[in-house]
């Protein structure tokens, strides 16, 4: 199953975090920063799979002798994909197919692109509820439920997530709705730390 789906930008600022198990906020942050360190040090042209970050490796390597069944439960695969300024990460168990996960990220990005028409990082900041909605159409509880682009987009549209906040027009101008602006501010301020 899929254990977590993360999106962050080139500076390691999270844009979307979805953990399919309950985790403390601090541990989430630690994991994100560890993965970011790994990702940002990758040379160009290397493969889309990361070695396990220390936080995960500590728990999985110590029990190499565990039975196969248990190993199937351990998150052991970190797949990432880089689009412009954004990194998309999937942490999953070994029961998922690595190549298929790469495709899954591709589908997700394409869906976003379809929803936002030429998506960029700013869209994600101002519209992060839509990110969650899109993800929710694809993955539920760590299990992939839909890989068809059309259906995903239709599902999100049915929820009205994107139509509700017409920030697309305001993109680039930095404006947008009041809510979006507020969020953006919040994001900037706290990212500055």
């Amino acid at each position: 199953m899929i254990n977590a789906f993360l999106v962050f930008n080139g500076q390691g600022q999270p844009r979307l975090t979805k953990f399919y198990t309950q985790l403390d906020t601090s541990i989430q942050q630690r994991l994100i920063s560890e993965i970011f360190t790994l990702v940002s040090n990758r040379p160009a042209g290397s493969c889309n799979f990361l070695p396990l970050p220390p936080l995960l490796a500590a728990s999985s390597t110590s029990n190499t002798s565990a039975s196969a069944d248990e190993q199937n439960d351990v998150p052991s695969l970190v797949t990432y994909r880089n689009y412009a300024t954004l990194y998309f990460i999937i942490i999953s168990t070994s029961t998922e197919s690595p190549l298929a996960l790469i495709d899954l990220i591709q589908v997700y990005v394409e869906a976003l692109d379809r929803l936002f028409e030429n998506v960029c990082e700013l869209d994600l900041i101002f519209n992060f509820e839509a990110l969650h909605a899109t993800l929710g159409e694809m993955i539920a509880g760590g299990v992939v439920i839909e890989t068809n682009l059309e259906r995903i987009v239709a599902g999100v549209r049915a929820q009205g997530a994107v139509a509700k906040r017409p920030v697309n027009e305001g993109r680039g101008g930095g404006g947008g709705g009041g809510l979006g602006a507020g969020l953006g501010m919040g994001g900037m301020v706290w990212h500055g730390r």
């Binding site: 198990t21 994991l31 728990s59 439960d73």
Partner: peptide
């Protein structure tokens, strides 16, 4: 002790 992110 089970690993982070893992579900029982």
């Amino acid at each position: 002790q089970q690993s982070l992110l893992q579900i029982t």
